[in-house]
Nucleic acid binder design. Structure first.
Length: 420
RNA sequence: GCGAGUAUGGUGAAGUGGUUAACACGGUAGAUUGUGGUUCUAUUAUGCGUGGGUUCGAUUCCCACUACUCGCCCCA
């Protein structure tokens, strides 16, 4: 038997209903904020990710799915969403508009060992905004996942925020970090020793050394901000206050992708059972990325959110997304009425009623069971006797009373009933 | 890349070196050939991840492989 590839999953049954529900909620929220849907290819030239995401990141160094196509071009399945959207922004010259606000939902691929809340193919909902360096946009971008989690009823959500400042600030900060760590680098783990040269920021994120005094005494980003960067960060926080979004400034927060500048943030769910996979959403500002990928100087900001992880969190919290999971009508035929049953079912469907029918000619008892399973609001019985006068029996589920309704009046009848 | 654990029907699982592999859920049929969700009855794995070994005999013991799960690293 052929099995699915490691780290992938099949979406079906109840889970696919939850999935579609979340997707439609995301769509509605994004439309409310006036964001436009964008879809970019699932694979791109490998170079895009090397230059965009950064050669020093773990994602690029050891987690991409790389392959050569039949013309021997280097391709990669996308490991994250931002680089492709930026490429599209530049290639389609969207910079002719002053501001572009977009959202996407799509698969990302990373070659990792799977575990709870982590897959080799996972889906991210993300948004990217180009063209504005207003701190209002930072607050708006953060407010979107916060609203989504709130609408889903997710508790224990924590927004963590930090800033890297502009290029000057973060380069000053990196120097300070190297100076701080270099003399005693041997006290740290092997990974951190490597990180010192590749990306010293990531040492702060190390969990092996998190108890080490060297880390606790490490310089803090916010102490190395130049006045402009400091002022910018303050305004972002002010706007978050204005929207009454709770947050926690975490000077040690850093991210695994190289392109970030200024604001970076993570949203974590403090939920038992999520373990270290508790980051539901991460993002930040990337004011140099468009230029890095050969576009005009353009500020940008965005986030990515793992839908599998979100679903897992909702599951752990016992949040039921399927409250309205039912159909309007189930049609049961009795006797030799298969054609009429199918026809009436079709009539209901064409008129917008969620309808199903018994396809097997089972006995009535079984058909009623089936109707219950689908949680049908109404049961329609098509019997030979009633058909003689062009009528069917309509029964509200769970009630004994039933009515004889003319087939031509059936739609109006159900319309009125279901409206109420 | 490193570490630990698990592998028995559609699902959750119990179990044993030796003729019929518990139990529960789900499925199907019937009691009820025109009215249900309760109940009752029957039925539902020639099979215990794959390959090899030990043995008179292996689902059970041993080895390898594979898959899955959970940690670490990293990330969504």
């Amino acid at each position: 038997m052929i099995q699915k590839p490691k780290g992938t999953y099949d979406l079906y049954g109840e889970n696919s209903k939850k999935w579609l529900y979340i997707k439609s909620l995301i769509k509605n929220i994004c439309e409310t904020y006036n964001y436009n849907y964008i879809k970019t290819p699932t694979f791109e030239r490998s170079e895009l990710f090397h230059r965009g995401v950064g050669d020093s990141t773990d994602i690029i160094r050891k987690e991409t799915y790389d392959f050569k196509d039949r013309s021997n071009r280097d391709m990669s399945l996308r490991p994250e969403g931002t680089a492709g959207v930026v490429r599209s922004y530049i290639e389609n010259k969207m910079y002719n508009e002053q501001i572009i606000k977009q959202y996407y939902i799509g698969s990302n691929f990373r070659y990792e060992r799977p575990q709870s809340g982590r897959f080799r193919e996972h889906t991210q909902f993300g948004i990217e905004v180009f063209g504005s360096d207003s701190p209002i946009i930072d607050a708006e971008v953060i407010s979107i996942p916060v609203l989504l989690f709130k609408m889903l009823g997710l508790k224990g959500i924590k927004v963590k925020i930090n800033t890297l400042g502009d290029e000057e600030s973060s380069s000053d900060y990196k120097k300070a970090l190297i100076e701080h760590f270099k003399p005693k680098i041997n006290e740290l783990c092997e990974d951190c020793i490597n990180r010192l040269d590749i990306n010293p920021l990531r040492i702060l994120d190390c969990k092996v050394d998190s108890g080490n005094q060297l880390l606790k005494k490490a310089p803090r980003t916010i102490d190395y901000l130049n006045p402009d960067s400091e002022n910018y960060f303050k305004r972002v926080l002010d706007y978050l206050d204005l929207l009454e979004i709770e947050y926690e400034v975490d000077p040690k927060l850093v991210r695994g992708l190289d392109y970030y500048t200024h604001t970076i943030f993570e949203i974590q769910a403090d939920i038992e059972g999520l373990g270290s996979q508790n980051t539901l959403c991460g993002g930040g500002r990337y004011n140099n990325l468009v230029e890095t990928l050969d576009g005009p100087e353009t500020p940008g900001i965005g986030f990515g959110m793992g839908l599998e992880r979100l679903l897992l969190a909702l599951d752990k919290e016992n949040i039921d997304l399927l409250k309205n999971n039912n159909i309007d009508a189930f049609v049961i035929g009795i006797g030799n009425t298969k054609e009429e049953t199918f026809k009436i079912t079709n009539m209901l469907r064409v008129n917008g009623f969620k309808t199903d029918m018994d396809y097997f000619g089972k006995n009535i008892s079984s058909s009623f069971k089936q109707a219950d399973k689908y949680n049908s609001k109404y049961i329609i019985i098509v019997g030979e006797e009633e058909l003689k006068s062009d009528k069917v029996i309509v029964k509200e589920n769970n009630k004994d009373a039933q009515e004889l309704i003319k087939i031509e009046e059936l739609i109006n009848y159900l319309d009125e009933k279901i409206e109420n």
